[in-house]
Structures are given as C-alpha cells and as structure tokens.
Design a protein around this nucleic acid. Sequence first.
DNA 1: TCATCAACTTGACACCATGTCAATTGACAT
DNA 2: ATGTCAATTGACATGGTGTCAAGTTGATGA
Lengths: 200, 200
Amino acid sequence: MSSRKTDTRTRILEATWQLMEQRLGKSISMSDVAKAVGISRQAVYLHFDSRTELMIATSNYVDEIKGLDERLSQFKAASTGIELLEACVDVWGNYIPEIYGLAKALLATRDTDEATAATWNNNMRCLRDICKETIDALEHEGILANEWSQQDAIEMFMTIISIQNWEQLTIEYGWSTSEYIARTKLLLKRTFINSSTPKQ
Amino acid sequence: MSSRKTDTRTRILEATWQLMEQRLGKSISMSDVAKAVGISRQAVYLHFDSRTELMIATSNYVDEIKGLDERLSQFKAASTGIELLEACVDVWGNYIPEIYGLAKALLATRDTDEATAATWNNNMRCLRDICKETIDALEHEGILANEWSQQDAIEMFMTIISIQNWEQLTIEYGWSTSEYIARTKLLLKRTFINSSTPKQ
DNA sequence: TCATCAACTTGACACCATGTCAATTGACAT
DNA sequence: ATGTCAATTGACATGGTGTCAAGTTGATGA
C-alpha cells in the first residue's frame, strides 16, 4: 500500500503545525518544514505543490483533529439566548489558544494570498453561524438591546470575539483565558442585552 | 545647501507612503519605491539603510503631517467622561482611514521585525493616554460600570478601537465611517457606563 | 576656470526564499 | 528481474534584501 506516502504526508502536516505553534507569527519556510520532518526540501513538493497548499492542508488537518464542530455539542444544552452567548464565549475562548499558531500563520499570508484568505473565511463562517444563532435567540426573547439591528449586532459580535482581539488581550495585555472569557462575556452582555433584563 | 539630498529623501518618503496607501496590505519592495521616485534602487539605500528604517521613517513622516496630537485639541472642549468618550471615537474614527495603509504596512512586518514593532507600540501609546483619560473621567464621575476595574476597562477600550476592528467592520463588512463611529460609541457606552445613568 | 565633493548611476555579488526540472537511488510488489 | 513509486541530489530561474566598487554628473568654492 501507499502507507509510506500517506505517512510522510501526515508527518509533514504535523511538523508544519508544530512549527507554526512554536514560532508564532514568524513565517516558516519549506526548508524549515523539510528539516523538521527529516526529508529533503524537494520531497515536500512531492506532497504539496506550493507553500500555500501546504498551509491550507495544515489548516484542514488541524480542523479535523480539533474540530470546532464537535465542541458545539455544548450548544445543545443551551436553551436561552444568554446561555448561548455564554456557551459561545466558553467554547471559542478555550478553542483559540489551541489553534492560535495556525491562525496567526494563515492571517499573516492572508493579504498576499487569495487561497489562504478563502480558507480563513471558510473557517470563520462556522463562527458566524454561532453568532447569528445567539443574536437571533436574544432577539426572539425580546432582550436584544433595541439600538442594534440583527445584522449590525452579528457583525459587531464577530468582531469582538475575533482572534486579533484575543491576541491583544491575552498575549499583549497578559489576560488569562478565564479573565478573557469572563470580561468578554461581560462586554457582550452589557452591549447586546437590554438593560431592563437582569444580568447573569 | 544640500537641498537636493533633502528633496530626494522627502520624495522617497512621499512615494513610500503613497504606495502603502495604494497597495493596502501587499508588501512593497525597495525596487517599487525606487521606481516610483524615478531613481535607482541603490539610491534609496543612500538615504535609508534598510527597508525597516524606511518604513519607520515613513511612519514618522506621516505622523508629522497628520499629527494625531493636534487633533486632540477637540478634547479640550470635552468636560465630562461621556463627552471624552465621544470625542475619542470621533477623532480616532476619522483618523484611521487616513493612516490605514501605513498602519497596515507596519502591522504586517510587526511580527518579524523588532524595530517596527517598537515604532508601532510607540504610536499606540498616545492612544492609550486618551483611553485612560476617558475611563478615569467616567470613574471619577461615578458612572463607570462597577464590574470593570480601571485597568481592565482601559485595555478593553484600547482593544475595541483597535485598527484591526476598524478594518474588519469597515473594509470587510462595509460599514461607513459614520456607522463605525456611531456603533462603536454605542458599544462603548453600553459596556462601560453604568446603566442607571441616562445614555446619550 | 578648474578641482572637488556629494548625489546618483550602473553592474556585480552574496544570501535566501519559492518553485521547477532531470537524473538517480532504493525498496517493494508482481 | 522488472516496473513502479517515494525520495534524493543538484542545478536552475526568479525575485527579494543588502553590500561593494567604479564611474558619472552637477553645483560650489578657490
């Protein structure tokens, strides 16, 4: 069988991911990857046509392993809008640290590479669904602050919980994950939930 | 006098800035700059030792022309915390579009280049002062929502009005400047101002 | 008027990155 | 044993940063 081929491919993906996590932000070269796997640089090109393709494949590989989808099972327990909001920040806030290196690498090439930008946006789509679900629930329950239209609220919600904001608050300002989660929940609740509604 | 030298240096800075604004996000090379000015690539190195130095010099050049400092004169009119908050978002929200290309270019190399990161952080320091002043005023007036410590509020404030958030809301989601300003004010007021206090 | 100095030129080079190509080795299956 | 396929070595094109050397041009001062 082509178990050798498959194996090397996986080893490349694994090494790429590890390098991304290690060297947050710093770009990694094909040579770096090859060296880490212990094969020649050209061998990497036998499995991935280009650097871009490798990065996208790595993204999909990581997605498969730590699927965000599965984590959303926590959402089934949430019945109210506020519970959805809390679950959303809990899941996402614990998820980001695990994929931060990868996300950073994708974001870095996003501006110069059409394909990675598409991959990134695709990944963000599932987050948008969650945000929409949450805002919809709040609206349905009549506790969405009336200054917000549904569309505006969703987009602001997405922006608040963006990886860049997580990065600034945790990496730059040193907030712990639990601090990040608690304060982000606080901000979202104060922002979107009608003040006549009791909080928490 | 060395008016020729000074002149060329200024022309390089001007061209660099223009290129940054034109090709948002895409990195620009020393050749691009030289071509735009109409001189040889090596001549650029006569004025700036490295690409990094050119970018930092461009940042300072732009800062000189459209100084954020001067715009803060609008702050003198603000007496209350809420007025400060509004003035802050007004000034900053109208400022970002003018320096977005430059900011984008600096942010792109920030992760791989220590010097540009330092320049960027230096630029952000003046923003932090404004945020602090605003939060302090709210606290002093007793209308800062009591869930927030002063430090946390400042850092969250800074994060909310970050250029990345502006980029996502305007460039990606298509918000106009006035929409961005209005909705950011709304979010900040709801988040930080005690709900017993009448808004607006 | 002539010499000088600084800005700028051309052209070459070192180094590193991506990406391509050709020829070769080594293992494994039929 | 022969073919197939992964992987290797080595060369090459392209394009980026940064350095160096030698030559050109033009303004300025003696």
